[in-house]
Design a binder for these strands. Structure first.
Length: 107
DNA sequence: CTTATGACTATGA
DNA sequence: TTCATAGCCATAA
């Protein structure tokens, strides 16, 4: 039952990310119980059905607030545009303001 | 079985 | 501060 695969487990967590908030790959990996698989979280995002499947993969970013270079759906700029549309704040460096939009369980 | 790859993270220069 | 490298472990061949 609980064995639908590591990927599906990641989707469940990413689905819980509220609007206007972002989570890091390691953050999601830790919530699924395996913080060492941060790389597979990203790989799961690439294989995810996207928002159509209830997986807002655009809300998942690097731990430092950077976005995935070159592999974002539609382009790296599209991800930033989508996050800004949800209320996520960006710095001039092109990174997300993790100090203000970082997601924490319970919010 | 081994090797190669990867939407990551931590560390060091 | 940025850049490069190592370690991480599942999946594919």
């Amino acid at each position: 039952m609980e064995r639908e695969g590591f990927f599906d487990r990641v989707y469940e967590v990413v689905r819980q990310v509220p609007c206007g908030r972002v989570a890091s790959y390691g953050q999601v990996a830790a919530l699924v119980g395996e913080p060492r698989k941060a790389r597979f979280v990203g790989f799961a995002m690439h294989a995810s059905p996207g928002m159509a499947g209830g997986v807002p993969c655009h809300r998942v970013v690097f731990k430092d607030g950077s976005l995935a270079p070159g592999f974002a759906f539609g382009g790296p700029g599209a991800q930033r545009q989508m996050l800004e549309a949800e209320g996520v704040l960006f710095r001039e460096d092109g990174r997300v303001d993790m100090g203000r939009c970082a997601w924490e369980v319970g919010q």
